[in-house]
Design a protein around this nucleic acid. Structure first.
Lengths: 333, 333
DNA sequence: CTGGCGAGTGAATAGCTATGCACGCATTCG
DNA sequence: CGAATGCGTGCATAGCTATTCACTCGCCAG
C-alpha cells in the first residue's frame, strides 16, 4: 500500500494545476517570469498535494549541495559543543546544512571520504586536528575545500583557522609570573595536537624571555583524567610547582580537584592555575578558573569566510587572538 | 580555469577504461555480474581519474538518501553531547549519515522542514521536546518518520523513546527517604519538558506512597543558573529542605555550589542531593553526585530500531529504564 | 495598418547512475 | 553435432528539476 508511494513531483502538481512542469518550477523560483494568476494556481495545487521541490536534480547538475561536512572526533570535551553550536548557527544563517561526521581516527575518515564525495558536499570542516595530511590530500584530489581548526596541515585546497595558541602561552607565563608564581608547571595535551604544541612553546618562550626557569612538564591528554594524572606526577616530588598552565580547561579541572583532594593544596593560595578554552564550567564556584577564551564566534566567522574562498587564493590561513579571562584561580598571592 | 570543472563521471571512467558505463557501475556494485579482468581495468581507470560514484542519481530514483536529520535545540547541556555521540556511532555503524539541525524554536523548524524534505532525508530524530505537534504533523504529511526523545507527541509517523522518568522520580523519593531525608525539595526543569513533568510527578507519587509530605518546589530550567536560583529560593526561608531532587545534573551542580557558597551548607551532611543524566561531571570531586543514568546506548538503540519500523506498526513507543548511580551526595546521615 | 516588443507559456534537455533486457559467445550435455 | 545453459557485456531508460529556446498573444508606436 505505502510501499511504492512516492512524493509528488512537479509534474504531478502541474497536472493538478493544469499547467506545464516548467510553470511549477517557475512558481517556486524567486524572480522567475510568471503570471500572478498562474503562480496562485500552482501554489494551491502544491499545497493540496503537499509538494516540496526536490533539491537533488539541481545538485546533480551543479555539483553544489549546500551541505558542509563537519568532522569531529568525539564530544567529550564541551569545547566541541561550543564550536558545533557556533558553526551550526553560522551555517544555518548561510542557508546551508551541516552533515556531522564523527570519526575515531584517520582510517575511518578515509572510509567516509567516499560517501562525502558521493553526496557532493561543498566543503569539509575539521574541528579536530585528527585529519591527517593523507586524508586531506585525498579530499584535495576531489577538489573539496577543507577548513581545519587549530591544525597545521597545508595544501592547495586546505585553509586553516587557529586561535593564537603561542601568544596565549606567552601571556600565561607573564600572568603567572605577575601573580607571584616562581616554580612553573605545564600540563600538556596530546602530543599530536598542534594547538598543544604551540601553547607549550609559547609558555616556554614566555618564561624564558622573563628570565625564569623552564616549567616542569606532565600530562598528555585533553580530558579530566589526564589532568588528575598530571597533577599527581607534578606534585609527587618535594619541589612542587606553585603556578600551573594547563593545555585546556578540562585538564585544569582535574588538576584543581586533585590538588585539593590528594595534596590538600588550595587554589590560588598554594597553586595558581590557568586553563584554556573558557568553558562555561570555568566560571563555576569550585573552579573560578582563569582561562583563555578562543572567541569561537570569530573563529567560526573566519572559517565561514575561508569556506567560500576560491582555490589558489592567497589568504588561506587565519589566526584569531584568544582573550584572557582572569578569575579567582590566579588571584595575587 | 577551475570554474567549469566537474568531477569525473562513470562515463568518463568508461571511456578511459574502454568499456561501457554499465560496466563501471557494475564494478562498483558488490555482487554484480562482472568479469574480474574488466573490474580490474575499471578500477585502475577510476583510481587514475579519482572517480567516486555519485550517490545522487540513486537517491533520485529510490527517494532514500541514507541521511537522518537530528534536530537539537542547543548544546549547552553535555547531555546532548552524550546523545549525539551515541547517535553518531549508531548511524555510522548503520552506514547512514547524520544531518545536524539546530533550531531555536518550532518556527525555525518549520522553515527547515522544506529543506529536509528536499534532501529526501529518511527520517528525523528530535533530541529535544521542542518539536511541536504542528511541525510533527507537517513531517507526517510528507511521510517522513520522526523519532522523538522524551516527548509526548503522537501520530501516525511518530515514534517515541523515553527514559522511565516517572519511575526514576519515585526511586529518588525512596532513596532520599532511606538516606535520612525528612524535608524534601524539588528543583524543576522547564515546564514544557515532558521529561521534567514525569520526573516531578514520579517524585511526588513516591513521597506520597511513603506517607511523606510533598516537596517544596523551585526552579524552571535545565541549566546551571536555574539551579543556583532554585537553591536561593528553596533555602531562603527558615524551613530548609534537607533532601533535594533536581530535574537534571546541570541544575544540581548549581544547587550544590550555591548551598556551599551562599548558605554554608554541606552536601551530603546538611543536604542530600540527587540529579538526573549522570554526566561525566557528576563523578568529579566537587560533586560526586548521585544521579540517574539514562542509558544512552539503550535509548539510541531503541530509537534506531524505531527508525526502520513501517508506518502503522503497533510498537511505536518505548521506555528505557534509567539506572540509579549512587555517589557521595546521598551518603547516609 | 503593421512591425516590434515584451510578457507568459510549453517543449525539450542536461545531469549521472543502476538496472532490465537482449545479445554474443563459450561451455556442457544429450 | 545441436541444443541449452550461463556468463559477460552493451544499450536504453527512469528518476526530477531548472533553464534555454521557441512560440503565441496582446499592445503600442510609427
Amino acid at each position: 500500500m505505502s510501499g511504492n508511494w512516492r512524493p509528488p513531483s512537479s509534474t504531478d502538481v502541474a497536472r493538478a494545476a493544469g499547467v506545464s512542469q516548467s510553470a511549477v518550477s517557475r512558481a517556486f523560483t524567486p524572480g522567475a517570469r510568471i503570471a500572478e494568476a498562474t503562480r496562485a494556481k500552482v501554489m494551491a495545487a502544491a499545497e493540496a498535494l503537499g509538494y516540496r521541490p526536490n533539491l537533488l536534480p539541481k545538485i546533480l547538475q551543479t555539483n553544489r549541495s549546500g551541505i558542509v561536512a563537519v568532522v569531529v572526533g568525539g564530544f567529550y570535551n564541551p569545547y566541541f559543543a561550543m564550536t558545533l553550536e557556533a558553526f551550526s548557527l553560522a551555517l544555518t544563517a548561510a542557508g546551508r546544512q551541516m552533515l556531522l561526521v564523527r570519526v575515531d581516527s584517520d582510517r575511518v575518515l578515509d572510509g567516509v571520504v567516499d560517501q562525502l564525495a558521493g553526496y557532493r558536499v561543498d566543503a569539509v570542516v575539521s574541528a579536530l586536528a585528527l585529519t591527517s595530511q593523507d586524508a586531506a590530500d585525498q579530499l584535495a584530489k576531489l577538489r573539496i575545500p577543507i577548513v581545519t581548526l587549530n591544525s597545521d596541515l597545508a595544501g592547495d585546497w586546505i585553509r586553516s583557522v587557529s586561535s593564537d595558541n603561542f601568544a596565549a602561552g606567552e601571556a600565561a607565563a607573564r600572568l603567572l609570573h605577575a601573580r607571584g608564581g616562581t616554580r612553573f608547571g605545564f600540563v600538556a595535551g596530546p602530543a599530536d595536537s598542534p594547538a598543544q604544541v604551540a601553547r607549550e612553546a609559547g609558555f616556554a618562550q614566555g618564561l624564558a624571555s622573563l628570565g625564569l626557569p623552564p616549567a616542569v612538564r606532565a600530562g598528555g591528554g585533553y580530558d579530566y583524567a589526564s589532568g588528575e594524572a598530571a597533577a599527581r606526577a607534578l606534585f609527587a616530588g618535594p619541589e612542587r610547582p606553585d603556578a600551573v598552565f594547563c593545555a585546556n580547561d578540562l585538564a585544569a579541572f582535574g588538576v584543581i580537584d586533585t590538588l585539593r583532594e590528594a595534596f590538600d593544596l588550595k587554589v590560588p593560595d598554594d597553586v595558581l592555575v590557568v586553563g584554556y578554552d573558557n568553558l562555561d564550567m570555568a566560571a563555576w564556584a569550585p573552579y573560578r578558573l582563569t582561562s583563555f577564551d578562543q572567541d569561537v564566534e570569530a573563529l567560526v566567522e573566519a572559517a565561514m569566510a575561508l569556506l567560500s574562498v576560491e582555490a589558489g587564493a592567497t589568504c588561506v590561513a587565519r589566526t584569531v587572538p584568544s582573550q584572557l579571562v582572569e578569575r579567582e584561580s590566579t588571584r595575587r598571592r
